[in-house]
Design a protein around this nucleic acid. Structure first.
Length: 570
DNA sequence: GCCGTTTTCGGCCCGACTGTTTTCAGTCG
């Protein structure tokens, strides 16, 4: 069983224990689950080596449960817990603003056992009559349900990406297939992905299908045909694969990469030129002669277009740009010289500054900013002014011992309710990088929030505004803020806007990156990594930047160390 | 249920925010 699945079991136990109003254990289970998620090896290997208890947060009891899961695929303890409550209660737990206490009261006093009951009780105004509840709480519950209902069941890019890679690799190695690519929204690196689409070019479709469906990760074959199959992997992810003839591979890749809107524009363009385009190629109207199809480049060229990166194919002006040979030269992973947002174990990260620096060197970077939380975010181990001093010393000392690499002393500083920063200027002025962030008071009006953020940006020490809209994908809408005003202020004050590369955030998003670019504001990509592995999220930041048409010159990370130092005056 | 430069038992991140209260409970990060 995968680490993700075992972690999910522990999370479920935590939820159920919370419903039972058990103290402290839920926290212990969640800690263990998080620990497992951040492992870079299979839990089963630890089990075999008898080293489960070496993992932080796993003690005697949880190790025993994990062993049971690995040995039998099930867990008795979980079964017993589940029997104590209606299954629907756990789903209610996912409604924002409803926690275990509220659920149990609604269950006991109104017999609410699932989302449907909850919605009905709120609509019938039964909830507001309970002691301690009122009109507002009822409205908030309905709003929470709406958010739940909007959750599309789509998967975050950060997860889909690795599944896609794994299947691609499998088909290449196990199937000895050469023409293999992810397609669809995953190839376009959209922030959320429905199903994973894979395209194979082969003149032996039957063989390709057999190999695909016999992948060890496949749990269920939904359909299996000559050229198209769908399967569900063990983690519940659906993967569709299509096999086309080698001569049509380029046309099929173009077609299945989309987007739909982009393809519609292409077809219109083809008609204007007396051509027809479909997944098999580009054809002359009338004679049906195929003039392109083997490669994507060929397909676009047949329409008089330059080949554009998949990330741009959203019908946002890329076709016109390609026709005029004015496609931007998008930023690439190779252009990235550093990371501006990393947490160390001094606050809530898991790696030491030394480890982060070493991993950054390995990634080919010239700098990395250590940006632990500031004092008022005590929950995340925010650093006192003294803690900051210690971190700064450590960063500078480490830099002195490295060749051509700089550890930037930074902080992710809370932007307080009044727009002030969470450290006095005397502390801020000694930092190389100050990343300002809103983590509280999300419900402010747009006017208040905008004033708050603009006030923070007016502090001369602020280098970067973190995750400028505060959204969390599938969980929390952006807070209300006048982003136009924020961008304008960024330009005026020389503040950089962050593109937070956490798969849950990707904030700024693609469209807002585009807006920043138009206004000449530089974007700083930060992974917000809390572990060494998460430094790898940079690829999602770069992909989002590319979707927003960002070139090197608009991305702060593309400055080599010397130029960065000159630009920031550090 | 985990963990240990105050502890092998007794703590366990803790403050802000919201909505309902008139002093607090629940949720969130």
């Amino acid at each position: 069983m995968s680490n993700v699945k075992i972690a999910a079991i522990l999370y479920e136990i935590a939820d159920l224990l919370e419903l039972k109003d058990v103290e402290f254990k839920p926290r212990a289970y969640r800690r263990a689950a998080r620990s497992i998620e951040s492992l870079d090896r299979d839990l089963a290997e630890f089990y075999k080596e008898g080293k489960l208890r070496d993992i932080p947060g796993i003690g005697e009891a949880i190790a025993k449960k994990i062993s049971e899961i690995i040995e039998s695929g099930e867990l008795n303890y979980l079964k017993q817990l589940r029997e104590e409550f209606p299954a629907g209660l756990l789903q209610i737990m996912e409604v924002p603003e409803i926690g275990p206490k509220t659920i149990m009261r609604l269950y006991k006093e109104l017999r609410v056992t699932n989302l449907h009951d909850l919605k009905k009780a709120a609509e019938d105004h039964k909830i507001r009559r309970l002691k301690g509840f009122g009109e507002r709480s009822e409205e908030n519950i309905l709003k929470g349900i709406r958010i739940m209902e909007q959750r599309t069941g789509r998967m975050l890019l950060g997860y889909a990406y690795f599944y896609g890679k794994r299947i691609e690799d499998y088909l290449r190695t196990a199937g000895k297939l050469e023409l293999v690519s992810v397609a669809g929204s995953l190839r376009r690196m959209k922030e959320t992905i429905g199903d994973i689409d894979i395209l194979v070019g082969s003149d032996e479709p039957g063989r390709a299908m057999d190999i695909f469906t016999s992948n060890p990760d496949v749990e269920e074959i939904i359909v299996k045909g000559e050229t198209k199959s769908s399967v569900r992997l063990r983690d519940g992810v659906q993967v569709d694969v299509r096999v086309v003839a080698i001569g049509s591979y380029g046309a099929a890749l173009q077609y299945f990469t989309g987007s739909k809107e982009h393809n519609i524009e292409l077809r219109k363009l083809a008609i204007e030129k007396g051509l027809k385009i479909n997944e098999y190629g580009v054809f002359r109207k009338g004679t049906e002669e195929r003039i392109a199809g083997r490669t994507e480049e060929e397909v676009y060229a047949a329409l008089g277009l330059e080949l554009m990166p998949p990330e741009m194919r959203e019908n946002r002006g890329e076709i016109e740009a390609a026709a005029k040979s004015r496609l931007p030269s998008l930023v690439e992973m190779e252009d990235i010289f550093g990371d501006f947002h990393v947490h160390s174990h001094m606050s809530d990260g898991s790696a030491s500054i030394e480890e982060i620096a070493a991993e950054s060197v390995r990634r080919g970077y010239e700098y990395v900013a250590i940006t632990d939380h500031s004092q008022s975010l005590g929950v995340a181990g925010g650093l006192s002014a003294e803690g900051i001093l210690k971190m700064t010393d450590a960063a500078r000392n480490l830099t002195d011992h490295m060749e051509g690499f700089r550890v930037l002393a930074g902080a992710e500083v809370e932007i307080l309710g009044d727009g002030k920063l969470d450290y006095p200027d005397a502390v801020l002025k000694d930092l190389d990088i100050v990343v300002g962030a809103v983590h509280s008071g999300f419900k402010m009006s747009e006017k208040e929030m905008t004033e708050r953020v603009v006030a923070a940006m007016s502090n001369d020490h602020l280098t970067i505004l973190a995750h400028p809209t505060g959204r969390v994908l599938e969980q929390r809408d952006p807070y209300q803020v006048d982003l136009e005003k924020v961008i304008e202020t960024a330009k005026e004050k020389g503040v950089h806007l962050e593109l937070n590369a956490l798969p849950e955030r990707l904030d700024l998003n693609d469209v807002n990156c585009f807006r920043a670019r138009e206004r000449g504001v530089m974007v700083a990509i930060g992974t917000d990594a809390h572990s060494l592995a998460q430094l790898g999220y940079m690829i999602f930041g770069v992909a989002t930047a590319r979707r927003g048409w960002l070139e090197k010159k608009s991305v702060l990370n593309s400055l080599p160390l010397k130029e960065l130092e000159r630009t920031l005056g550090i």
